[in-house]
Write a protein that binds this DNA or RNA. Structure first.
Lengths: 117, 117
DNA sequence: CCGTATCCCCGGGGATACTG
DNA sequence: CAGTATCCCCGGGGATACGG
């Protein structure tokens, strides 16, 4: 792929678009949280808390809220006693899987590149 | 794409791989810096400083160092007076372009999704 | 169980000045 | 020009306790 396929005008718009994506994915926990929900399809708060090693409840709460605002996940309160809450990916959230897949592949390649072939 | 194509064992390895990628790309400035270098092919310190709006010299220095450690960019000191330094993407750095392209596309889609269709 | 509230600490990162 | 050094502030985020 050629760097120079960019046009000057386009370039700034593209940079902004990439940053938009990064804003959504940024932070230590976003990807692991998404990954946990995705893997189990539907997942409860306390289960994600266990899946994602090291995250605090405050952080998990915050991350989930942001992901919900960005319409990547859907939050459902189940009328049990005591209350349980399920999270799942939205259709839009599922479109992230291609990206996550790319990042996975690249991460593996990168690790080989750095540690040495 | 199916979430459930993951196997339990594989899942953790994949999560780690994604995190490896995110670590490399994380931070407010990594993508803009890469984007600047890529766009101009070769680029000097002070030029990048101008391209990436808002970055401080301390941060730029730090980000460039990290990118170099990760073998994404190549640093070349030119024997001019005064010294100038050029940065360019390595072959490995160029493999990021697919990812950046994906992130760009997704960012545009995402913006439409959030702001409303 | 699912969070929110409070306290508190540490380091990311800006502004500025200085060096080779 | 291309950084490094120093100072300093603010808020991200952990630990803990509490509320619905």
């Amino acid at each position: 792929m050629e760097c120079r396929e960019f046009q000057t005008q386009e370039h700034k718009k593209e940079m902004r678009a990439v940053q938009d994506s990064m804003d959504v994915l940024n932070g230590k926990w976003k990807i692991p949280v998404i990954s946990s929900i995705c893997y189990y399809n539907k997942r409860r708060f306390s289960d994600i808390l266990n899946d994602v090693v090291g995250i605090s409840n405050k952080m998990l709460s915050k991350e989930l809220k942001e992901l919900e605002i960005n319409k990547l996940i859907k939050r459902t309160v189940l009328d049990t006693q005591p209350v349980t809450v399920q999270y799942e990916l939205t259709e839009h959230g599922k479109t992230l899987q291609t990206i996550i897949s790319n990042l996975t592949d690249w991460g593996i390649k990168h690790r080989k590149e750095i540690i040495g072939k």
